[in-house]
Each structure stands twice: as C-alpha cells, then as structure tokens.
Amino acid sequence: MSTLAHTTMNAARPAESGLAGPGELDRYPYPDAPGAERGGAPAWEGADTEIGRVGRRAAGNRGRGLHGQLVQQLGQMIVSGDLGADRPLVPEEIGQRFEVSRTVVRESLRVLEAKGLVSARPNVGTRVRPVSDWNLLDPDIIEWRAFGPQRDDQRRELCELRWTIEPLAARLAAGHGREEVQQRLGDMVEIMGHALAQSDSLTYSRADAEFHALLLQVGGNRMLEHLAGIVASALHVSGGPAISCDRPSEAGVGHHRRIVEAVGAGDAGAAESAMRQLLTVHPEVERVVPAPREH
C-alpha cells in the first residue's frame, strides 16, 4: 500500500530554504532604514502572546521552529486583514513583539516576500502588499485564506479551479493507464472506504489528497503535475467544511471507485465524467459550478 497524502503533499510543495542568501539580510534594515515611515505601524495587541500557541500551522512551515511560526503568525495576520495593505512592518518592532532575533525576523519577511505578501524597498521599508500581488496558488496562502474572512471566496475559487483541471487530469490519466497506477488509486479508495466507516476524517482526507495528486501526476502533462500541490492543499484543509468540494460520503467513495475503473479500462470519457460527478456530489457545490449537461 502506497504512502498517504503527507508524503505526496510535501513532494509537490515547492521547497523553501527559509535562509537568506549572501547580502540579503540588509534588505530588511534593523532598525529602520533612513527615511522609513514609522507612522501607522501595526498594533500588535490581539496577536497571540506566545507564537507557539498558533492554532493552525501551515503545512509548509511545520517543524521549522520560531522562523516557521513567525511566518505563520504574520501570514495569517496579513491574510485576515489585521495587517492591511500598505501597512509598514518594522522588523525591530516585530522582533520585540514576538521576542525573536533579527535573523528570524529577516528570514520570515523574506519568505513572506516570496509569497507576494510583503515588499521591501530602500528608504521605504517593508510594507504589506495588496491582495492582487499575493501568490494565491501558494499552499500556505491557500490554508490561511481557508480559515480567514476570505474563506467563502477561497472555497468558491478552489472548487472552480478543481472543476477546470481535474476532469482533464482524469481523462489524461486514463490515456496513460498503467496497472501500478490503477493499483495505487484503488488502494486509496479502499483506505477512504475504511476511514469513512470508522468516521476517521483525517485518514480519509490524506488518502483523498494522494488520489487526486496521483491523477495529476500520471497524465503526462508536466504543467498539470505542478498543480498537484495546489489540489493537495485544497484537500488538506477540507476538514473545514467551508471549502470542501468532496467531503467524506458513500457517494464520493463510489465516484472515486468509478474513476479508478475508467482509468484501468483506458476509458478517458468515463474517467472525465466520473470526476465531474464527484465534484458535484454536494448540492452546495452545484451553486458554484454547473452539473454537466446531457447532450
């Protein structure tokens, strides 16, 4: 039986070293660069007094100590709107507020800049960027939005994205069907069925994530393959009902099983149709994307 979704999601997620390159530390002056505005600096009241108590840790930052926790904390505050667009982020104040070193602050800001959440400019300092500049396909931002005030938009957008790419992925997978692929997909469906019977939503979601990631990876389209991490992230946070497109259900397991059968038979049309049916199992999803019409 193949490894569950944790391995798949980590493999699909772009690597982040979290370490500044030579000469990059000075991009986040500490204290402010000359002329940097201090007015309107964020009030840190209301943030957790202990960043180790963060309720939800993004998968990309788990196990990274203070650096990962600070990225998580600041990222959530930006995405939630607690730190609005164009707000200055003063590294010295962040370090004092969260009791972390200047190196931790600079590394964290560098990661947030790579995600499009902040920008650092000479004589201006570090500021929060508008939503239009964010990398909305970044797995961490997907998770932060899923548990923030934008969760309804996140749910709709993820469902629309999945509706666009996953039926094609199922079609392509059927055209490249191999016995070992069918076996792995079948293994995931069996795990999902057992997990559903035991009300084990965590195991179900992990197997579900590996199932969908595998479909995206075996179709011979490398661009689709790179989207596997996005779909895995969408399913990873599906424990929150606000964004789940295919929550655990007998009908969902049945549609997964039909996808496996179609892939094994090399029936691209049936695989695509079964995937579309899977993504419209729940009535609320039908308000997001229309069910396929019969011709």
Rank of each mutant, 00 (worst) to 15 (best):
P149C: 08
L89H: 01
A59V: 09
V100P: 05
D133W: 05
G81S: 09
D48F: 04
G75V: 08
A41M: 05
P88K: 06
M77L: 14
Q76S: 13
V131R: 11
S101F: 09
I51A: 03
N135Q: 14
R56K: 13
L89Y: 01
R106M: 13
R145S: 03
L168S: 08
E99Q: 04
Q72M: 04
V128R: 01
L117E: 14
Q96N: 03
G52S: 14
L83K: 04
R155C: 05
V104I: 10
S80R: 07
C159Q: 12
S108F: 06
A173R: 05
A58D: 08
V128S: 01
Q73N: 13
V71F: 01
S132F: 02
R64Y: 06
V54A: 10
A120V: 08
H67A: 03
V131Y: 12
P91S: 02
L112T: 06
P139H: 06
V79T: 11
T126F: 02
F98K: 01
I51F: 07
R38D: 12
L83V: 15
G148L: 01
D48I: 06
G148H: 01
G60Y: 00
N135T: 11
W44M: 05
S119H: 14
A146V: 05
V90W: 02
Q154T: 12
A41Q: 07
H67I: 04
L109F: 02
E143L: 12
D153Q: 14
S80P: 01
L66V: 15
W163A: 14
L117N: 06
Q150A: 12
D82A: 15
L172C: 03
G40Q: 10
L83Q: 05
A43P: 04
L136I: 12
G116Q: 05
Q96S: 10
D140C: 10
L161T: 14
L70R: 07
R97N: 04
L117H: 10
A146N: 07
P130R: 10
P42K: 09
T49R: 11
R102D: 11
V111C: 12
W144K: 08
S132N: 09
E160C: 06
W163E: 07
A146H: 06
A43W: 06
S101T: 15
G39T: 14
D138N: 13
W163P: 00
P139A: 10
F147L: 11
G95N: 01
R162P: 00
E99N: 08
P91F: 01
G52H: 10
V104W: 01
R110P: 00
